[in-house]
Computed example of a mutant assay.
Amino acid sequence: MTDKQEEGLDERRRRLAAELAQRGVADKTEERDEKRAEETRKGYGMAMKISSEFISAVIVGAILGYLFDHFVGTGPWGMIVMLLLGFCAGVLNVMRTVGMVASAHPADRKMDLTNKGEDR
């Protein structure tokens, strides 16, 4: 009778080990899928940020150009120039966000460091 009990226990242990192994694989797969989904969400967030910065720079340039033309009466030239400047500013913002361009001029960084030292 003891041999049958030990065989039954061994069989249950094997089944339990197999079930735990299957659940472990399923848990790892779920973790991997969740990490991938999180990275995708971060990418979408960054894309929305970049696109909104670019579009807002172009729109602000167009509005400023329109207002300049309206009050000064220079015709379409103010809007054309300001629209192009807005486009350039939008491209520069995108490049800064992506990391292709440094965030500030070295002289500006030097001034930031001296200002930080005065605050203390």
Rank of each mutant, 00 (worst) to 15 (best):
H105T: 10
S56C: 11
M1A: 11
M48I: 10
M100L: 15
E7T: 10
V72Y: 08
K42Y: 02
K49F: 10
R36K: 11
Y44R: 03
A107N: 15
R14Q: 09
Q5S: 13
K49P: 00
C88T: 12
M111L: 11
G8V: 08
G45V: 00
L16H: 08
D10G: 07
L85P: 01
R32E: 14
V94N: 00
G61L: 00
Y66T: 09
A21Q: 12
R36N: 09
F54T: 03
E30A: 13
V58G: 01
K28S: 11
V98Q: 02
H105N: 15
S56T: 14
L9S: 08
Y66Q: 04
L113N: 10
A17H: 07
D3F: 09
T2K: 14
G8N: 07
M48L: 14
G117Y: 01
V94H: 01
L83T: 10
R41E: 15
L113C: 06
T2D: 15
S52Q: 09
L16D: 10
E38M: 15
A57E: 02
I63V: 12
T29N: 13
I55F: 02
G8D: 06
L67G: 03
E38L: 15
E34W: 09
G75R: 04
R41D: 14
D10W: 06
L85K: 00
M48E: 08
R13G: 00
G24L: 09
G24V: 00
A57T: 02
A102H: 10
E7R: 07
D10N: 11
G43R: 05
E39I: 08
D27R: 13
S103K: 11
F71K: 03
A18Y: 08
K28P: 00
R41S: 10
V91P: 03
D108N: 13
V25E: 11
M82Q: 03
V91I: 13
E39N: 12
M100E: 10
M79A: 02
D10R: 09
G86S: 02
K110A: 15
A21M: 08
Y66I: 12
V98K: 08
V25M: 05
R32Q: 13
G65N: 01
V91G: 05
G117P: 00
E31G: 09
A18I: 06
D69A: 03
T40W: 11
V98D: 01
I55R: 05
A107M: 13
A102E: 15
I59Y: 00
A47W: 02
H105K: 14
L64H: 04
L9A: 12
R41L: 15
T40P: 00
P76T: 15
R120F: 11
V101H: 07
K28E: 15
M100A: 14
G43V: 05
Y66A: 07
G99T: 03
L85F: 11
M111S: 08
A62N: 02
R14N: 06
S51A: 07
E53Y: 05
R96W: 01
L83Q: 04
M82W: 07
T29I: 11
R36Y: 07
